[in-house]
Computed example of a mutant assay.
Amino acid sequence: MSDRTSATGRDGRTTDTRQRVVATALRLFVTKGFSATSLKDIADELGITKAALYYHFPAKADLARSIFQPFIDDVDDLLDRLDGRGESPREILSAYIDVLLPHRAALAAMLRDPGAAADLDLTDVSGRWLARLGALLETDDATPEARMRTTVAIGGATRALMLPEVEDPSARDAAVRAAVAALESR
């Protein structure tokens, strides 16, 4: 087997082409938006036919799921692990940012095209995350103001991931400190 031979995925399709399709689609979703990116755009960018693209992803929604599902699964897994552990707000927000960092491009695509997020049922997912994170970060007697601060802390930490400097550990720590500060000024 030559090193140019592709590995085969569970469904029998070659994984290198699938990976190239996913990487190209994600780049186009970030730059053009999900709604404005067609399967033809992706195929043209890759220099393959639409039929070849359909072989790997029968619909645009299937392609989107392959991009966003690992992101969703990782955040859900984190929230499951944190549930009932009594971690500090700093530990919770730090773990949240750490889980999101590898998925920055998918997050950017979601934020770039909120309408597409609704089409892909990602709006429900983000609402579920906000509720679960809020429950982990708030006290039982949270006032409306405290809930607003919690939402600002989570939203600010999430948006900070779009800044290129967040890859620097000191900038990442600054984002965590800022989010915690929003919570502590209750």
Rank of each mutant, 00 (worst) to 15 (best):
A135C: 05
T150H: 04
T151A: 14
P58I: 07
L82S: 05
L130T: 15
T158N: 00
I67V: 15
W129A: 02
A135F: 13
E145R: 11
L130K: 04
A61I: 12
R104Q: 04
L107D: 05
D62W: 09
I72V: 15
E87K: 02
A109I: 11
F68S: 03
I92P: 00
D98K: 10
T139Q: 11
V75W: 11
M148P: 01
D141V: 15
S94T: 13
D113A: 06
V125K: 04
D76G: 03
A95D: 12
F68P: 01
R81T: 14
L122N: 01
A109M: 01
A61Q: 09
P70K: 00
L122P: 00
I72R: 15
A61S: 13
A64D: 07
L82F: 12
T123A: 07
P58L: 09
T150Q: 10
L120K: 02
L63K: 00
S88K: 10
E145W: 13
M148G: 03
A106K: 03
G156Q: 10
D80F: 09
L82N: 08
P89V: 14
D119V: 07
G84I: 14
T151K: 05
D80L: 07
Y55C: 01
D62S: 10
T123Y: 06
V99K: 01
A106E: 07
G127T: 13
E87S: 14
R128K: 08
D74W: 12
I154G: 01
M162R: 05
V99N: 00
P89S: 05
D62T: 07
T143E: 06
E138L: 15
A61Y: 08
R147E: 11
E91L: 07
S126K: 05
P89R: 09
P114C: 06
T143C: 03
T150I: 12
L107Y: 03
L133C: 03
S66A: 12
A157D: 08
L120A: 00
P144V: 03
A118I: 15
T139D: 11
G134M: 11
G134D: 10
D113E: 06
V152A: 08
E145D: 15
A160R: 01
A146R: 13
L78F: 06
L111H: 04
D119E: 14
G134K: 11
L93C: 02
D83G: 01
L79R: 02
H56S: 00
Y55K: 07
T123S: 09
R90C: 00
L130I: 13
Y54K: 01
S94H: 05
P70Q: 04
R104F: 11
I72N: 08
G134C: 05
T151F: 08
G155E: 04
R128G: 12
D141A: 15
A146N: 07
L82I: 08
E145A: 15
F57S: 00
H56V: 07
G156I: 10
R147T: 14
G84W: 13
D80G: 08
L82Q: 09
D76C: 04
P144Q: 06
P89A: 09
R132K: 12
V75S: 03
